[in-house]
């Protein structure tokens, strides 16, 4: 076909088309490579998630921000270098640097390199400078970069095909992976004398004991305690946690024993928290109750140890609805929180970045409501609910209306009064919600249920990362190891629950009293460990 056959006009179009085709055959890698590079990390994060935490719409924000960063860098590289290849390379360098800075900061945190460059800000600045230097080298380069860009384009085709395919597979054919079986080594009669009661274990993160709230905060919690007392609760005034970190406290109470083997098993200098998380998910308490015909209802949270429970018969809410996990992990790896806090400095909003993406107050509200209105079942019910309140971020005012999330970097210093007020407001709101929940639970129970409400540990006001014991003042230590507790144990005489009982022994008591389990009381003990070396236990009480 020749242009003469179709006249001049068509010839121009054809030439244009030919020009476009030849341009595309030359330049496609410079367009395709950065486009795929921008998509890679969000898709890689999505592909790494368990199917039940994945939602397609959660990818929108990470992809949009990635494309914005990459597009901006591409345009800058193109303008300065006057070549599409240079634009592509600057775009890829930009998006890779943006996508990895959070990961680099986390890896170097508390290391010697981190201290040498002046901490987080130094690491970010150096990473940014390295990316800029590389960009400059690309822009000023006089070598032909087409081959390198073609190589990157082909490499990213492989990468994105793999992670995109895996993500699509997860979304189209979700498969719930099976948790390991839990060995049941608790001796108890198969059918106890009493009819089974529903069991509610409600863990309130960082709820300090009323005695310490009065002594350290000047806060009178007696109205709340009186309301619980009127509903038949026992309130051991000197209740203490077994461990000062949530995942250890939960791992211990849910397995009805101390975690004495962990320092040896993992090493005292081990820094990883997540290796102990299976103790929370695969716990003996839930396994025992399920073996006795209980329906296990679990409340997933934004905190890793209680993010989901694959043994649960019902999760309220569904784990994927707690927060957008792709978004949460992606934000943790990238410079997005940094840009957000810089933007906040300009706009004057709260500049303390949240250490992780929490679930919203709306989600917490709905959990409080739904636990009081669970679907009916012919089975007795065991509810394990770990609420991330009154722990930070502060999400509630005293009347339970929502406030902008606030998670201070420090609990002391000039902002100390503000922090204390925010914590007490959240405690007041939690008190209100708990009374509503207890009333709803009682209303939906045929026989009076067992309700255990307890703080996993107290506050301590020691900042975001719990220090080692040597760096903690005695009052702060006391505050951390004094936790609120209130137990509704139908039929149990008040004097059979010691005033300083800890969670491990309360749960052993419940199984002993109601299920005739062979679980004699253990001696009471409380262990301290800092956030950096969580298995370096020191007995403090």
């Amino acid at each position: 076909m020749t242009t003469a056959q179709f006249g001049d006009n068509d010839g121009v179009n054809d030439n244009r088309e030919l020009g476009l085709r030849s341009w595309w055959s030359q330049q496609w890698p410079a367009i395709v490579a950065p486009m795929l590079a921008a998509a890679y990390l969000p898709l890689a994060v999505a592909a790494s998630l368990p199917d039940e935490l994945l939602r397609l719409n959660h990818l929108v924000l990470p992809l949009a921000v990635s494309y914005a960063v990459c597009g901006f860098c591409w345009a800058l590289g193109y303008r300065l270098g006057r070549s599409a290849d240079k634009g592509a390379l600057v775009g890829i360098i930009g998006v890779v640097a943006f996508s990895s800075v959070g990961w680099i900061v986390t890896q170097l945190a508390t290391s010697r390199a981190d201290r040498a460059v002046g901490g987080r800000v130094g690491v970010i600045a150096l990473w940014g400078l390295a990316a800029l230097a590389l960009d400059l080298a690309v822009v000023r380069s006089s070598v032909d970069l087409a081959r390198l860009v073609r190589f990157l384009a082909v490499t990213y085709v492989f990468l994105v095909t793999y992670v995109g395919g895996k993500t699509a597979w997860s979304l189209l054919l979700p498969a719930r992976d099976q948790p390991p079986a839990v060995s049941l080594d608790i001796r108890a009669p198969a059918t106890p004398a009493e009819p089974p009661r529903d069991v509610y274990l409600i863990v309130l993160d960082k709820y300090t004991s009323s005695a310490v709230l009065a002594a350290h905060y000047g806060f009178d919690n007696s109205a709340f305690e009186s309301e619980l007392d009127a509903r038949g609760f026992l309130i051991p005034g000197a209740s203490r946690p077994n461990y000062v970190h949530t995942f250890l406290a939960l791992g211990s109470m849910l397995n009805l024993r101390y975690l004495d083997e962990l320092p040896q098993r993992f090493g005292r200098s081990n820094r990883r928290w997540d290796i102990a998380y299976p103790l929370v998910e695969n716990n003996r308490l839930a396994a025992f109750l399920q073996s006795r015909g209980y329906r296990f209802v679990f409340v997933p949270t934004a905190f890793g140890a209680t993010r989901r429970n694959r043994h649960a018969d019902l999760q309220v809410p569904r784990a994927a609805d707690v927060r957008p996990e792709v978004h949460a992990v992606w934000a943790h790896l990238t410079a997005a929180p940094l840009f957000r806090s810089l933007g906040c400095r300009v706009l004057g909003c709260n500049v303390d970045p949240l250490p992780y993406l929490p679930s919203s107050a709306k989600v917490i509200d709905s959990v409080f409501h739904e636990l009081g209105h669970l679907p009916k079942s012919r089975h007795p019910t065991f509810v394990l609910a770990h609420f991330l309140v009154p722990h930070e971020p502060y999400l509630y005012r005293a009347d339970c209306t929502h406030r902008p999330p606030y998670w201070p970097m420090h609990d002391d210093g000039p902002g100390a009064d503000h922090v204390r007020a925010a914590y007490l407001d959240q405690v007041r709101c939690v008190n209100r919600r708990i009374i509503q929940l207890v009333d709803a639970i009682r209303a939906q129970s045929r026989i009076p249920p067992i309700v255990l409400i307890l703080g996993d540990h107290g506050h301590g006001r020691l900042g975001r990362d719990l220090p080692d014991l040597q760096q903690v003042s005695p009052p702060a230590m006391l505050e951390r190891i004094s936790a609120f507790a209130a137990y509704s144990l139908p039929g149990v005489p008040a004097d059979s629950v010691p005033n300083d009982i800890s969670p491990v022994n309360v749960l052993r008591f419940v199984l002993r009293y109601y299920f005739e389990a062979d679980l004699p009381p253990l001696s009471e003990a409380t262990y301290w460990s800092g956030a950096i070396h969580p298995y370096d236990f020191v007995r403090v009480r």
Binding site: V157, Y162, A302, G304, E325
Partner: peptide, 30 residues
């Protein structure tokens, strides 16, 4: 660890494998 860990090792392995494949393809060694 407050997140589901995407696994830096897994991402690095993916990148390394894809880079080898990409290199082989671009240099027409297969």
């Amino acid at each position: 660890m407050l997140y589901v860990d995407p696994g830096a090792g897994s991402i690095l392995l993916q990148v390394a494998s894809a880079a080898v494949l990409g290199g082989l393809l671009v240099t027409k060694r297969w």
